[in-house]
């Protein structure tokens, strides 16, 4: 399967758009958006944190859907999509944990707290890790794809239950009072900045997913060719 460019190269358009949008959102985060009255400049991390969290969970949803499709139809394209989404999801989950930690240090006074959302995201990170381990340790690619699809389904279904159990566990424990971010309503500048950043990240995400998907397709081709040559 070769990718022929005829007419508009939509991938390049998407890449350009995401570059412009990300540049715009960075400018807005640092120049346009006002500093938070109580949190100061640290609050600007929030613009990065929220879209990253969103995309981390969206990736897992994509894995879930493509895993079901792969098990039902068995077409490699679904497996490639799941693989691509998994890598992006892992990156964004890492980003969420890191930005959250950096933000939490000055605001909550601690790098980490066992809050339900934080804990769930950390477990999500570990599930992603297990997903990659599974893929790399199972030597037969077709079998690895099937196993990973099962893990993708089971893991996705588990996430809400993990969240619920962690929340109950927290509420039954004495808990330091955590300053919640949902304080006063956001001023318009902040809201606009956040929306632009969210759009920028989503466009960037689609672009990255597409690129990653093409890399995975090329990888499969190379493997198939090598198998044919060594036959």
């Amino acid at each position: 399967m070769t990718v022929r460019q005829r007419g508009v190269d939509w991938l390049a358009v998407l890449g350009g758009a995401s570059f412009v949008l990300v540049a715009l959102s960075v400018a807005m985060i640092f120049v346009y958006a006002p500093a938070d009255a109580t949190q100061g400049d640290v609050q600007r991390l929030f613009y990065l944190h929220l879209p990253a969290a969103w995309l981390a969970y969206l990736s897992f949803f994509i894995i879930f859907v493509s895993s079901i499709a792969y098990l039902l139809r068995g077409r490699p394209l679904w497996d490639r999509l799941a693989r691509s989404a998994a890598e992006l999801g892992f990156i964004f989950t890492t980003l969420v944990l890191l930005t959250g930690s950096i933000w939490g240090r000055p605001i909550w006074g601690t790098w980490w707290t066992w809050d339900a959302r934080l804990t769930t995201t950390l477990i999500l990170w570990f599930i992603y890790l297990g997903y990659f381990l599974l893929r790399s340790y199972v030597s037969d690619p077709e079998r690895g794809a099937r196993y990973a699809a099962v893990l993708g389904i089971v893991g996705f279904v588990d996430i809400p239950i993990i969240h619920m159990s962690v929340r109950w566990w927290r509420t039954l424990h004495p808990q330091p009072i955590v300053v919640r971010s949902e304080g006063p309503a956001m001023p318009t500048e902040m809201l606009v900045t956040m929306l632009v950043t969210l759009v920028a990240f989503c466009v960037l995400y689609v672009f990255l997913l597409w690129v990653k998907y093409r890399i995975e397709t090329a990888r499969d081709e190379v493997l198939a060719l090598r198998a044919a040559v060594e036959g």
Binding site: I123, F126, I127, L129, G130, L133, L134, Y137, V138, S139, R143, Y147, V150, L151, V154, G155, D158, I162, S165, V166
Partner: peptide, 21 residues
């Protein structure tokens, strides 16, 4: 799933622990 994988001893806990939380 892990039975025929390399490093099976590592893989099984890595899959089971997070999901069994």
């Amino acid at each position: 799933m892990t039975a025929q994988a390399k490093a099976r001893e590592v893989l099984l806990p890595a899959l089971l622990f997070p999901l069994a939380i």
